[in-house]
Every structure is written in C-alpha cells, then in structure tokens.
C-alpha cells in the first residue's frame, strides 16, 4: 500500500487510463496548459499532448454536449467541469441528453463518458461556488453519480467510471484533495454502484459519503471514547444506490444517522431514510436522523459558513438522539 493524497489518486487513475486506452481523452477549462484548476492534470499536457488534453472555451454546454457527441463516435471522453456549480450551465446536456439518449433511441449505442467535477463548501467562495447539489443529479435515471470519500475509492471508482459504457458524473470535493490515504499498489478497480462499510460498529449506523465521511469518522472516534461504536456506511455512488450494506447494518444497530453536505430538503438523507423505513421498518428503534446543510445559500463569512455546514458535533448530537 502507498499513502497518497486524493489529488494524486485521481491523477493516477486518469493517467493510467489514458495510457491504457488511446480513445480516452480529457477536455475542459484549463485542463491542459494550466494543468487543471486543482492541479489534478498537471503534467498531462506535456506527456499526452494537446489532442488528448483539450483546453476548451468557458462554455459548459459545449464541453458536455461535444463530449456526448465524441462518446457516440466510440471515444471515451473525460469532460471536466471546473466546479459542479457550473454544471447548471450544462444541465440540459447532462440530464436531457447524456442521461436519456441510450434509452430514448432504443439502446442503439452506448455513451462512455465521464464528467469530472468538484463540489462542496467551506472555502469562503460564496453562495454560487459552494454548492453540493449531488441529489439533483442523482434524481435522473440514466446517469451514474459517484462521489468518493477516500483516495483508494477515488482511484478505483474513477478507473471504473472511465471504463464504463454509461455516462458517469464523478463528483470530487475540493477540501479532500490534500487528504491522504492508503491506496493499493498496482492495478485495481472498484465497481460503480456499491456501498461500503468503512468503519465497523454495532451501536448506530452512520450513512454518508464524500467529505462527510471525514466528518463522520471524527464523530465516530469521539463517540468511541464514550463507548459508542458507530458503523459507517459510505454510499460512494448515489445512483445506482446500493442500500444492501445500509440495511444489513441497520438491522444490526436499529438506529441510523445520515450525514450529507447538501441541503436536507429532498436530499440524499431523505432518500436513504425512506428506503430504510421501506425495507427495515420492523427494525426501527428510533426515528432516523438527518444531518445536512442549513437551508440557506452558503454565506461568505467564515463563521456563518461553518454554521451552515454539518459539523462533527452535529453528528455526535444526532447519534446521541437516536440512541
């Protein structure tokens, strides 16, 4: 095992898949000469050249739309949206075209494309640049929505996403790029649409993903000091949503807290909680709790912004309420 950052893990996945398949190419704003806004594609332009690392205009609909078209010709584009907040400018192409074409045209082709993008708040970027609208995209059948929380998962899932014949929205979190984790040496992939138990426990099930995995770990560590063992299930993919590990865990703990960075209303927590009630109602010992962002656009001011985002104490508090 090697200990590398999330940035390095994602970069390795891209590099390996570019080496592995000449039909894989990257396109997006500042992915080439600049080396990627978050330096994920640093060095790619010099190695792979301008043909395979394509700098685009600031034109999100053109980026995603042309990636769809290129995918229809059999290529495997990795289209980068600088942040998920800019995905709204390409919303039509993501949800109306990429997600629907295969079905609507009777399965005549595949759409092997990845949209890599970055979400999350906490960096004082203000309301337009700090969103976590993952649930919005997970609403649409036909899309695969992945959002990893560890370097190991990021690398393995991204490699699977690039090899997948379906359109994958791959959502990274900017505050996780420096986080380090163990990553297996050599070639490996992780299947899309599979949740994973990241921390075993017996007293309460915490369901989470992406940045909130880090928050949930910290909460679990503190809870452990008072003898409460939380089991953390990392969804990793929001669509397809693999509830099996969640349900199995819940049947053991009978209590659940769902932690997400996005807003609570109509969110990931709403979906997971409902599925718990639908599939394990007889095992419920306490109402499922949701920890999520306050229902406000994220403010710039640091104190206000942190008040709006889910914190470790919020998770601990929620766990204590369900116990």
């Amino acid at each position: 095992m090697a200990r590398i950052t999330m940035r390095e893990a994602i970069s390795q996945a891209l590099w390996e898949e570019m080496e592995h398949d000449p039909n894989v190419f990257i396109m997006g704003e500042e992915v080439g000469l600049w080396g990627g806004t978050y330096a994920v594609t640093k060095g790619f332009y010099d190695h792979f050249g301008a043909k395979r690392v394509r700098d685009t205009p600031i034109a999100e609909a053109a980026i995603i739309g042309s990636a769809i078209g290129a995918a229809l010709t059999g290529l495997r584009p990795i289209a980068e949206l600088m942040t998920i907040n800019f995905a709204f400018s390409a919303m039509d192409h993501i949800v109306n075209e990429a997600a629907k074409f295969r079905y609507m045209f009777g399965g005549q082709f595949t759409i092997p494309m990845v949209i890599r993008t970055v979400g999350g708040g906490g960096r004082q970027l203000g309301a337009t640049h700090s969103q976590t609208p993952d649930a919005v995209f997970a609403h649409f059948p036909g899309l695969i929505v992945v959002s990893p929380g560890t370097p190991e998962d990021a690398k393995g899932l991204l490699k699977s996403a690039i090899r997948s014949d379906d359109p994958v929205l791959f959502i990274e979190n900017a505050t996780l790029y420096q986080v380090r984790g163990e990553v297996p040496e050599g070639e490996y992939t992780i299947p899309l649409g599979k949740s994973k138990i990241q921390r075993p426990g017996k007293d309460v099930t915490i369901v989470t993903y992406s940045k909130m995995l880090e928050i949930s770990y910290k909460a679990a560590d503190q809870l452990a000091k008072s003898g409460i063992e939380a089991e953390i299930v990392d969804l990793r993919s929001l669509r397809p949503l693999d509830m099996q590990p969640v349900i199995e865990s819940f049947k053991k703990t009978n209590r659940a807290v769902i932690v997400e960075e996005g807003w609570k209303s109509y969110g990931v927590g709403s979906e997971v909680a409902t599925r718990i009630y639908e599939n394990a109602f007889d095992y419920v010992d306490a109402p499922v709790k949701r920890v999520a962002q306050k229902e406000v656009p994220l403010p710039y001011n640091q104190q206000l912004e942190q008040m709006a985002l889910p914190q470790v104490d919020d998770v601990i508090q929620a766990v204590k309420e369900v116990l």
Partner: peptide, 18 residues
C-alpha cells in the same frame, strides 16, 4: 431540445477529427 444537438454535433465531428 432546441439547439441542444449543436454541441453534440460538434462532438460527432470532434470524434471524427480525433
């Protein structure tokens, strides 16, 4: 979707250029 297929058409052409 009016106009939405134009970027997709550009992508088809990009695929052939590539």
């Amino acid at each position: 979707i009016v106009g939405a297929h134009l970027p997709i058409a550009a992508g088809l052409a990009l695929g052939d250029l590539y």
